[in-house]
Each structure stands twice: as C-alpha cells, then as structure tokens.
Amino acid sequence: MPRYVSLYSLFLRQRLKILMEYRVNFFIGAVSTLIEQTAGLLTVWVVMQRIPLLNGWTYEELLLVYGLLALSKSLTYLFADNLWTVGREYIRTGGFDRFLVRPVDPLFHLLADRFDHQGLGHLIIGGILVSTASARLGITWDLPHLLYLVVAVLSGGLIFIGLNLITCVSAFWIMDSVPVTRVVFDMNEFAKYPLSMYNRGVQFVLTWLVPYGFASFYPANYLLGRDVGVLVWLGPAVAVTLLLIGYRLWLFGLRHYASTGS
C-alpha cells in the first residue's frame, strides 16, 4: 500500500510537469470547465426565477444538491478519467500490453497514468456552491456534519468511478467503450435535481440501478435535516458494492483481453 501511494505521487508529479509544458491546453481546459459549469447553473437559475419553489425545494437548496454532485464528479475526473478511454487510447493502440508486464496492478497503473486537471474546475465550483448554499441555509459545519460531508463526497465519487469501471470493462470486447460509459454516466444529469420531483420509476433507477442519488440528493437531505430514513446512510455501502462488482468484472475482462495484432 505505501508503495502504491508513493508510486501514485510519482506519477502525479510527472503528469503535472507535463501539464505545465502544455500551458495553453491547461488554460483551455480550465476555461471550458468553467463555461460548462456556468451554463448548467444558469439553467437552474432561469428555472428558479420563474418558480421560486421546485417541488418544495428553494433555490439555495437546489444549489446544495448541484454542488454536492459537482464535488463527487470531480473525483472521477481527477483520479479515474482513464476509465473513459481505456479502449480508445490503450487497448486499441496496444499500449495496454505495457501495463500487463509491469510489476504493478494493471488497474492502478491505468488510473495513475492520467490526472485530468479539468476535475479541479468541478472541485472548485462544487466547493463554492456547497459553502455559499450552506451559509445561506444556515447549515453549521460542526464535526459530525463536516465528517458526513467528506464521507458523502468520497462515496459519491466512488459511485461515479464504480459505474465507469463497470461500463469500461466492455472495452475488452468492443474496443471502444465510450458510448456505453456515456449512456450510464449521462444519467447523473437527473441527480442535479432532487429525486423527489421524479416519478417512482426514475427514483428507483437513480437509487438502486445507477445510484447517482447517493452523490447528491440523499446527502443533501441529511445536511438539510430532511428525513429520507436509512437511505442517507447507505452511500458508502453502495459505493463499496459498485467497486467490488466493477473490480470482479474488470478481472473477468482481463482474462478475455485479446490484445491487438503484431
């Protein structure tokens, strides 16, 4: 474990060094994240100008939900972005073979091989939204609340990563897994809003099948002191379950890895 931590920091340092070499790319990436996030927020703002209450949720409460989701999402950008392109960039090009002949877990190597700085944009915006919304809503950040927030964001991030891991395994058969990952990942858009405004079917899907609800709606309920029962505590268990399923599938995919010609 300490070995993996020190290897990760080594990879990260080199990644950052390369990023600094391509400053223009870095800048464009940062700006595009900002634009993307601002556009998303603008939609919420426009909607709330017309209807002050959405399904009983105020503007500030919506910002909290939105901010929590952005924080969780930032983790998958920062630490697991290669799950998106393992097929396109590694399996198709044959680069994946290299991971398999190094004395390091191939999944770890894949993840450590990329650090997407665009995640920083999501992290910062998520942080701003959660702190301003909670200030206006009068949420006090005592130790239990702070601890809850950290665990919730970590679980939310791992739920994103777990789902991407599960879908990326298809790359071992179909080479390019981006369309598959995209279909599942894009459902997180629903979780930008309170799940309670959807019908039962959608609620079920976002709670039990693609459980992005645990990355935004359920923790927001806890922080706001609303009651959704046991669900506000299930985030970590859901995240661990998804990761375990994902890793088993990954190992199964690895056995079926066919490499490329030559």
Partner: peptide
C-alpha cells in the same frame, strides 16, 4: 502477473514504454 513482471523485460517493436 506481478511476480513474473519483476523478472522479465519486454520490448514491443515500435511501441515505446517511455513517456
């Protein structure tokens, strides 16, 4: 895999393992 990888070295034709 990991134990084996420590004892072997591989050159894949034109593909580099360097960054």
């Amino acid at each position: 895999r990991v134990a084996n990888a420590r004892d072997i070295g591989v050159v894949f034709g034109q593909r580099t393992q360097l960054w």
